[in-house]
Nucleic acid binder design. Structure first.
Lengths: 78, 78
DNA sequence: TGGCATGAGGTCTTATTAGACCTCGGTATT
DNA sequence: AATACCGAGGTCTAATAAGACCTCATGCCA
């Protein structure tokens, strides 16, 4: 029962994560090494299929070598 | 099976949320009106008892009238 | 052609969030 | 004393995140 608005947020967030990863020239598997998150899960995150938790977000930021709050610096829909 | 390190992160995060709420002079119930999150849940978040998801975090930010990324502007432990 | 890395996506179990509701002890305020 | 608000914390169900693992089609390159 995820709303259309929420889905839009997750899509924007995922696209942002993907952008950051590609900016660093990392593959899904390479990033997964750096943050202990399964590559398949990162793939799902980037596609807006998962509503990640704060701890996962912090882990992800570690792998991307950025501050966690930068992961939320995406343009919100609406 | 939440690690000590993760618990520390959640505690820092929760304290930050509480600080922001109090800065605005809002009670738990008042904040809950503004973001559709049960007051008891906000209480648990502030105490680091819950590992909230990104969507909840965005909702919380709405109630606090700030940008979501500001919610992650807390000093990380370690 | 064979080998290798990639992104995408499936499967399964377990742990936990989400969400809604209720209760309680403390602290005013009247 | 009665009322009202406060934070904290308990209860229950349903949904889903976490985590680990596997498969597959594609593209690339020796």
């Amino acid at each position: 029962m995820i709303s259309k608005k929420d889905k839009a947020i997750l899509l924007k967030f995922g696209a942002h994560v993907k952008q950051l990863r590609e900016d660093r020239g990392l593959s899904l598997r390479e990033l997964s090494y750096g943050c202990n998150i399964d590559n398949s899960k990162i793939s799902k995150i980037e596609q807006g299929m998962i509503n990640v938790t704060v701890l996962t977000l912090v882990e992800l930021a570690t792998g991307l070598d950025i501050s966690p709050n930068e992961l939320l610096n995406f343009r919100r829909p609406g």
